[in-house]
């Protein structure tokens, strides 16, 4: 079950917990120092969230659809049985279009390795998964504009292929 909720993993739950503690502590200190500023901060927090909400909701649906169509079996199949450059490219593309949290992706990658996937393919998958975000492009464009976003993603994709190659040679 590769797509289990991230909260089921202790590690992830722990970091989310830390985030809440940080935000809570920050709020308390801020409130103590200046009520109005704190109110403003909360207003700004809501505004910046509301600002990305349409893209955010769209992305949620796209991820759901992509993952429903691209089953874990299919992913295993492409990464596990096909080898060589096509396997690497396939892995890199899958990593680019999916948005699986690392806490779920790493155990999945480990399972794939055990089942005969190559290090090169897994490295390509892990690296693009983290650095390239096709479904989150609309959000990235909101901050960086089209040109910078496309350049960043293309360079990250190409770089991931280099990472895959080096890891494939080394391991």
């Amino acid at each position: 079950m590769p797509y289990r909720s991230v909260n089921k993993y202790w590690g992830a739950a722990m970091f989310i917990y830390i985030l809440y503690v940080l935000a809570g502590t920050g709020l308390v200190i801020s409130f103590y120092k200046d009520r109005n500023k704190t109110k403003m901060a909360l207003k700004k927090a809501w505004k910046s969230f509301e600002n990305i909400l349409p893209q955010f909701l769209s992305i949620l649906i796209i991820i759901g659809l992509v993952l429903a169509i691209l089953s874990p079996d299919m992913i295993t199949n492409i990464l596990g049985t096909r080898s060589g450059i096509w396997g690497v490219l396939g892995a890199a593309i899958i990593g680019s279009v999916t948005l699986i949290p690392g806490f779920v992706a790493f155990p999945l990658a480990a399972a794939l390795l055990k089942n005969g996937a190559g290090y090169m393919q897994i490295a390509a998958f892990v690296s693009t998964l983290m650095m390239v975000g096709i479904v989150t492009l609309p959000l990235e464009i909101k901050t960086f504009g089209k040109r910078a976003t496309i350049i960043r993603n293309i360079s990250a994709f190409l770089f991931s292929l280099i990472v895959a190659f080096v890891i494939g040679v080394l391991l």
Binding site: S30, K37, A41
Partner: peptide, 23 residues
Amino acid sequence: QNFIEMISVIPPIFILLGLLDVW
């Protein structure tokens, strides 16, 4: 599932963001 997951990470991130912006 993703919605629940994201909605549980997002509040503290945006609160920190708001605090960062103000302070």
